[in-house]
Nucleic acid binder design. Structure first.
Lengths: 217, 217
DNA sequence: CACGAACCGTACCGTACGGTACTTATCGGG
DNA sequence: CCCGATAAGTACCGTACGGTACGGTTCGTG
């Protein structure tokens, strides 16, 4: 949550407050509700300051993404030796965290914004969102499955491919459905996380990891 | 919007031509390029006709989705008895078709449109897109894996869950990445389809289906 | 206290869009 | 040949947005 990154408070506290209000407007009104006048009004600042701080509207959008990414920090894995059970648990926790993040109001709103903007800005916001928002969670997962391999619990050649498989098992089409506004399917994330991890371990787990797994249904 | 009937040429040829031009504008210009004046100009029709035919802008967008969905038809599976090899092949073909559809210009543009619209229209377009665009391909896949089960090649309790697993294995985060404008990852769809099917069969295939499968890497 | 920088609030400008009204032209049927 | 319907083309209106300019106010500093 604090300042762990290279940008020591990329924006001033006042600017952060403005960005917070802008995110709030975006979340409960969509992109169309995110007007420069609206942001200025909601944040009690002048449009002139908005343009001085962020350049133009696109700069404001980029700043919102950067700001939100700076808030979502995922703790680094410690170097403990993984057991079959602890790997399973860490994977389940990761899965639930991932689903929780993707289903979050602000995440969905920003993804919608970037997707809607991508045709006309050359995917600038989209790239920013992928790099700033996903790198953290990607690294966490990669570290986890690498540890699993070193502990002899997982077996794969391409870690990236294994991770993408895990990601697909967890998320399936849920993310796109949520982006489209469909709310069915967010029923039981805990169960879905468990299912995904079970399948992942059946695909990439060694005998050692599968020792205490439940039998195939 | 008139009767929502079962699509025997829902629109007149003239209207289809207009919708075609509208899709074209949307594909290579994004939503912002899709103005009523622009559509009228591109299709050599008057704005008045546009509003008479489609009601308002939202009606035009809905009509575009309906029109595009009516174009994408997927042949029904025939009732042939599945063998291990033919199930595998059908699954691979399905996977490639799915990836091809999702990566299509028009599909991406319409998904972006519906996602951008979803916050302010109550996901009307999103629901339309999911129902009209996905039902066909969902039914095809469900029929396939049901046949696989009846042939003793697949084993599962919940067909829907099995299908979602297959979907996740095939698509992973590729769809969202493409929607965000990321072009990395569309490198080798054939290989990705093969990998997904292999994993799916290892998860849900019976011994009979796995007989001629390659060994675990 | 005085000065200047930062900033708020607001008024303003140009533009572009959604939607409507009106005029003209094409065309099939009596 | 005329008539009504359909639709093209255009002009128009209200609105709302992005961006800019300006007067008034706060506040830190010498």
């Amino acid at each position: 949550m604090s300042v762990e990154n290279l940008e020591p408070s990329e924006f001033s506290p006042r600017q952060n407050a403005v960005l917070e209000q802008a995110l709030r407007l975006l979340v409960d009104g969509g992109e169309k509700a995110l007007t420069t006048s609206g942001v200025a009004r909601a944040a009690n600042c002048s449009k002139e300051s908005l343009y001085k701080w962020f350049g133009d509207r696109d700069g404001l959008l980029s700043a919102m993404i950067a700001y939100q990414a700076s808030k979502v920090r995922t703790f680094e894995r410690n170097g403990e030796r993984l057991t079959s059970a602890s790997l399973h648990d860490h994977l389940v926790i990761f899965s639930r965290d991932l689903l929780e993040v993707l289903a979050g109001d602000v995440s969905l709103a920003l993804n919608r914004l970037a997707i809607g903007q991508s045709p006309r800005d050359g995917s600038k916001l989209g790239k920013l969102l992928l790099e700033r928002g996903r790198r953290q969670i990607d690294r966490r997962a990669m570290g986890l499955i690498d540890s699993g391999k070193r502990a002899g619990l997982l077996r794969f050649n391409d870690a990236d491919e294994a991770y993408h498989t895990l990601y697909g098992l967890i998320v399936s089409d849920l993310h796109v459905r949520m982006l489209l506004g469909d709310t069915t399917g967010v029923t039981d994330t805990a169960r879905q996380a468990e299912k995904a991890v079970t399948a992942f371990l059946r695909l990439y787990g060694t005998e050692k990891a599968l020792a205490d797994m439940p039998a195939v249904v």
